[in-house]
Design a binder for these strands. Structure first.
Lengths: 214, 214
DNA sequence: TGATTGGTTCTTGTATACAAAAGAGTTGAC
DNA sequence: GTCAACTCTTTTGTATACAAGAACCAATCA
């Protein structure tokens, strides 16, 4: 991994964690000094982040942190739900028995995490569950695009788990989804995944709270 | 527009036009000399293209043109059809009367282009038609993502128009789609758009021919 | 007193120079 | 004769230096 990529990862983490505020300007020289490198790899890193949409680059002006607001996040979740539904529909027809076992194993680990109340661990296994479905669509392009948006929404999806009882509900939905996939029911899997990801009810308020906290 | 962006545009055009071959290595120094600049803006430009997926950047190895093969193109079209269908479903509920008029106007211009057998003009108006739908989804994120994939598939969608009678068929489909949207029939619009974009029948062979020609 | 214009300073965009790593070719040993 | 290691070349990754454009501040004029 090149130096620029490391810096990009670190800046990304600091933005997502809220350490650098919304709309803040990222000064190249300051970042260069912070990471003990020249401006060149910093610019490279900012270019990478610009591609992911995490920052906004205004020519001759500078780069600014571009945290999406509530409206844009809802838009992104709306698209994410559609991605998941589509992936589920394809996966239902194409999934392998081995992958179904992987889903069950991930759900079992989710169950243990839920019992222990370990949201971090739960989220990791949750990510495995979803990534496995993406990988079973038989469509590599869809897999990459979906994973990309999933990664981008990670901090917000993760915050949903803070909701009381959400981990148990989420796990139950996972079990249901796995069942649909096992039965080859594409429409069922699609609808279950759409509902699983959609921001509705209490999840909406939790999302707002997450945004306001940052 | 900065120098790096201009160079990125030009390289992109040369890749899409097939002037630079699939898998070819893009030499930074050579490009710098070609455009009469130093390696720095060239690297910046390659970074931009890397983000769009048009080139593949292997650390310490170099950058290579990454033209998608038939399999990946079919994957991309499969996702594109889903995007269009989703956009259509949303737009059917949210489209404005003014936008419906824009669709009709674009179709009228498409009709004139079809009569004149002008595939270039047809494609331009066709792009207006689709972009209008994207813009009426009420979801800015979806609009940008869909437009991005549309742009990426542009050369291949365009080549479909070379098919005998395809312009007339495409126009009829446009009329039908506009009708569904006017009636607020989301499911109808979604299916019509999916079928309109999907690669099937003769379109499949035309796509293969386009790939082989490049 | 307010607005506009000029200059100054700060920041980004670009050029050049240097370092490090990967690949290929050659040479030597088994 | 073949394989491996070493060196040399090529190319990328990084640092430094320079140029150009934008924002800000002050001074002057209306």
């Amino acid at each position: 991994m090149t130096r620029a990529e490391q810096i990009a990862r670190d800046i990304e983490a600091r933005i997502i964690s809220g350490e650098v505020a919304q709309g803040a300007r990222l000064d190249e020289s300051a970042l260069a000094e912070r990471y003990g490198v020249s401006r060149t790899p910093v610019r490279e890193a900012l270019g990478l982040l610009n591609a992911t949409g995490l920052i906004r680059h205004e020519p001759r002006r500078g780069v600014f942190v571009r945290q999406p607001g509530a409206a844009e996040l809802l838009e992104m979740f709306e698209v994410m739900a559609e991605y998941e539904a589509f992936a589920g529909r394809l996966a239902a027809a194409r999934i392998t028995p081995a992958a179904l076992d992987v889903l069950d194993a991930a759900n079992d680990r989710c169950a243990r995490a839920a019992e222990a109340g370990d949201a971090d661990l739960y989220y990791i296994e949750n990510a495995v569950f979803h990534a496995t479905i993406y990988g079973q669509t038989g469509n590599g392009f869809l897999e990459r695009e979906t994973q990309r948006l999933h990664d981008r929404l990670r901090p917000y999806r993760r915050s949903q788990l803070q909701l009381r009882g959400r981990m148990a509900d989420s796990l139950a939905e996972h079990r249901s989804i796995a069942q649909y996939l096992r039965q080859g029911d594409g429409a069922g899997a699609a609808e279950a995944l759409r509902a699983h990801v959609a921001v509705q009810g209490d999840k909406f308020h939790m999302l707002l709270r997450t945004i306001n906290a940052a």
